[in-house]
Nucleic acid binder design. Sequence first.
DNA 1: ATATAAACGAAACGATCCGTTCCGATACAG
DNA 2: CTGTATCGGAACGGATCGTTTCGTTTATAT
Lengths: 202, 202
Amino acid sequence: MPDTSHADRRRSSIGARRNPDAEAAILTAARALLAERGYAGFSIEEVARRAGAGKPTIYRWWATKADLLIDVYAAEKASHMALPDTGALWSDLLAYTRALWGFWRDTPSGSIFRALIAEAQTTEAALSALRDKFLPDRLRDLRHMFERAADRSEIRASEIDDLLGLYIGFNWLHLLTDRLADDAPAIERTARLIAGQPPGGS
Amino acid sequence: MPDTSHADRRRSSIGARRNPDAEAAILTAARALLAERGYAGFSIEEVARRAGAGKPTIYRWWATKADLLIDVYAAEKASHMALPDTGALWSDLLAYTRALWGFWRDTPSGSIFRALIAEAQTTEAALSALRDKFLPDRLRDLRHMFERAADRSEIRASEIDDLLGLYIGFNWLHLLTDRLADDAPAIERTARLIAGQPPGGS
DNA sequence: ATATAAACGAAACGATCCGTTCCGATACAG
DNA sequence: CTGTATCGGAACGGATCGTTTCGTTTATAT
């Protein structure tokens, strides 16, 4: 098993072009650091130390911390989540929410996303990236789930955007307050509320 | 002989108890600093400088930056927001949401709240303060609105907590992505969704 | 009247991180 | 061979953190 956690021996220039090894080492170190200590323990200094890279190398390729976070998240997106299709919106939401919360809990992705949201409150560029790139991406994926439900007449087509907003806000609230325990009853109740299913039905 | 004709430049102890002048000066300085520079330019150092206070005085009364932010926000909110009671949940929500978004837009409170949430992503103590102190306070106020609705049989009593969570998440999402324009139609649609009112009804 | 206790602001501390700027070494491109 | 852009290392000036020390101030307890 390859050890990707520690720095390699001195890694020098490979000429007048970007060194992919350095880039990979930096992204890996950033990911590991976020996984271990979250946003609080995340600094360019520490990433450079772990990656065996110089700070100038990092600043050369990522102008801001947000840019680095974005690339780390993009690399992480390799393990992306599949959309469920259970035949009913409320059970789709139940399955997706439990998978999403687990994904946020069990990978660095939760910390990365929290870091991005926090960074967006400080940096205008990070806010733009969050609002105009991440949010539309997530909405685009999830929208299909709601569109299928509208096709089945479970919800009105005109409600799709608003229900999506409610659902995203629900997930953000739990992420940002660190309440991602697998609280199945609460998730199920909320899934039913959003899907317009009466309690107790199946 | 004490000089009561004009304020001394230096503000000293008034005995073995908290000096209200110092507290007021610190809260005022923090509020002004957040209004001027937002979370990015907010530091304890600068608050102390502006307030003419010592850092130990701040740290003596506010263990973390989050505790200070919470007090600034609380002082701000008490004077600006009242709970509506229109007789129907959806119109209560409509009125409250428009007032809240305006409050966030037109006072430093939006910046303060954003700062608090961001701080909670970097500091465990701030997260606890937000989740265990601040949020319950906010929920307690809003809960009355939903309890009245349950008394009128507009919603089920068992749904109150979950609907509250959806409503809070909706507001957070818009605050954190800086989408607080007075989008009356969107607010109205979401208020109806949460209150379980069909579109177009009154 | 006096001593105690706690608050006050100022100043300095060690530490961390920021973003930048040097430097010598490296290796491809022309 | 020369030029150029990269690499990591080191150090910088600056900011902020949270803490500690110090002398001063004033209400309260004795």
